[in-house]
Design a protein around this nucleic acid. Sequence first.
DNA 1: ATTGCTGAAAGG
Length: 410
Amino acid sequence: MQTWRFRAPLSSPSFVISAVSLTREEEDQVPGPTLIQSCDMAETEEEEKVPAEASGFSDLSDSEFLDLEDTQELSDSLSKPGPSSELTGKDGKLINFTKWKKGLDVLSPMERFHLKYLYVTDLSTQNWCEQQMVYGKELPGFLAPEKAAILDTGASIHLARELELHDLVTISITSKEDAWAVKFLNMLSMIPTLQSEGCIREFPVFGEVEGVLLVGVIDELHYTPKGELELVELKTRRRPMLPLDAQKKKDCFQVHLYKYIFDAMVQGKVTTASLIHHTKLHPEKPLGPSVLRHAQQGGFSVTSLGDLMELVILSLTLSDLPVIDILKIEYIHQETATVLGSEIVAFEEKELRSKVQHYMAYWVGHREPQGVDVEEAWKCRTCSYADICEWRKGGGVHSSSLEPQAKKAR
DNA sequence: ATTGCTGAAAGG
């Protein structure tokens, strides 16, 4: 019935395995609400049943190498003596000049990394250590295997909890328009579910913040017995200990972002125009057959992505969804599922805004990235990039301000 | 498509 790629190794803690087996594969007659999951498959139009080999993380495209080559080219051309050579480069066009002019300083990180939007977790990682987050974008896939295993376990625990509330169906898609359509269809089914059942998991959020589109997924939203809308962010931990303050601070920031974006959505502050502008989606591009099929199955007579977007905005604003009242973070032990702690955090909008402004200032190129302060240098102990970190070498100052002349010579 | 592009989060 449903297919999913388990990324957790078979030797992972029994909690994961048993929880995963809670899925409703054999609950034939009355299956829970079904959400759709998209997967990229160019050739086939068949849905469901994805062979395990074709799944998983086929990441690590060569795009990052291209990026590195690009920047290498840029710095090479900068260090060459005459301006003429780079102007008439391989392709003999003067676009090299604009590239050159925009190079290094002028190109914002958003542009340099070819990003149209950011994930909420990009910003919370940035809250942990901005410099580490930057290295993560520059050199992805650098995670220590044992750290990756912890993340993997956490991911499957989250998946197990998601499957408690609904099935997942994998459908094939071929465009980013389809991917967003799937997201929208899921939202269209989840909003009424929240209002009737009182609980949903993995709810997508998106919205423009400080000029940058932010995209994320809320772990859980539910109504309390008092009728308040509560957000729950589950954090699983390898060791049965409460998190350090730095960890709590980061998680707190993450849920603040979720509320900020969710509230903006239900208040009608998020527009289709802004979404299209940032994502460069084509609202009139025809949707793929499997997506159309699921839209009809859900009772939505949509023809285009644009229709679907409008429908989502309407549903968000006209379903009597309240803003989020309570922000809760729950820490549980991975192996035993013991609750280690549960925190209700107060929403501080002013503080959030100034933090977000500060972080976005980096992304739009208004300031250099910075690493942690000396008091938090302990974070470097577990950082994969500690060896190469320019911030550390400079003792807490960015390299560009240390040796500005060094590159010009040569 | 001339000029390309993204499941988000997973934990420390």
